[in-house]
Nucleic acid binder design. Sequence first.
RNA 1: GGGUCGGUAGCUCAGUCGGUAGAGCAUCGGACUGAAAAUCCGAGUGUCGGCAGUUCAAUUCUGCCCUGACCCA
Length: 324
Amino acid sequence: MCNFLFMKSKECLNENKVRKIPLVVICSPTATGKTRLALDLALPCGGEIVNADSLQVYRYLDIGTAKPTSEERQAVTHHLIDVVDPDEDFNAAVFAEQARTIIEKIAHRQKPVFVVGGTGLYIRALLQGIIATPPVDENIRNHYRGIRDRLGKEHLFGLLRERDPEAAARINPHDAVRVIRALEVLEQSGQSIVTLQKRHAFADCPYDACKIGLQIERSELKERIALRTAQMMEAGLVEEVRGILSRGYDERLKPLQSLGYKQVIEFIRGKYDRDAMVERINRDTWQYSKRQLTWFSADKSIKWFAPDQSDAIRKTIEMFRRES
RNA sequence: GGGUCGGUAGCUCAGUCGGUAGAGCAUCGGACUGAAAAUCCGAGUGUCGGCAGUUCAAUUCUGCCCUGACCCA
């Protein structure tokens, strides 16, 4: 089955992108076994794995992001893991750009590509593109953040309503993240984010993707999350966080405010005890997994399997390669 | 044994000068175009500790009981 993908990639290049590069995408909520499945699929066919997880891209955040181990990374080539420091900028557009470059190269090497991760927006940006705007300008963003903090969300939204009524009509006044984004796009590009979105419409699709999702019953997923949190504790997540902080990274950095890291920092700061920390990580991870499920469930092109249906998954991928 | 303050949603608590109740968190559902493990939106929650009394009407007033914390002995 891997030969077929191999052929496809070659054709794709020879015919100068007349055919789309085939991709296997493994996307599902956290703790469902994506990493394991990806290794099982990629190893026998010499495939390479492209990470699509927004936090595994950061160096030093290993235990809490459940990165593949160094053994696993030796067995199969992984891309877009450990590519930036915790204080460096990274986002969906940067991800998509880098992932596309990498996938191009893997295809050129004539290896099958497996995109694996739980960050829905990153996968969408990779497969369907994202609006083209100037890179984020931290000065501009901080300016609007300052307005939010000093004058409040209402005032911030008032600015958007004044300058870009169409965007204001589509964004919730309390959603300051999106209000700021709309304001900065307008300021940097001179265009409404709505105009750019309408023009773009997720139509930039250079790949032929076979999306595989791993589905686990709720009660079992809850158990798996609790088990994984316990394993992270045992593996030294608290020590990992202390190490990152002692490198001088500010605890307010985006990746350190993420699931797991945030709660460990609050524990270190004495906001609550170890049991409460574990409880919160479990609860917040569960909430996150539900948000992921909401996102992925809306994507009707995902084919869902139980983790033990590896034969069915292999067959599905084989069929995909034959058809594409 | 006496006194004081409590017992209201899964949790923490607000409230009803008598007309059967609410906020935050949790729970459930949803959105998501350069922060996405982020951010935001929507929904429901209940014998208002128990039993009696007064009243057209009691979660609200009164009595007794149960129960928790604290104080005195």
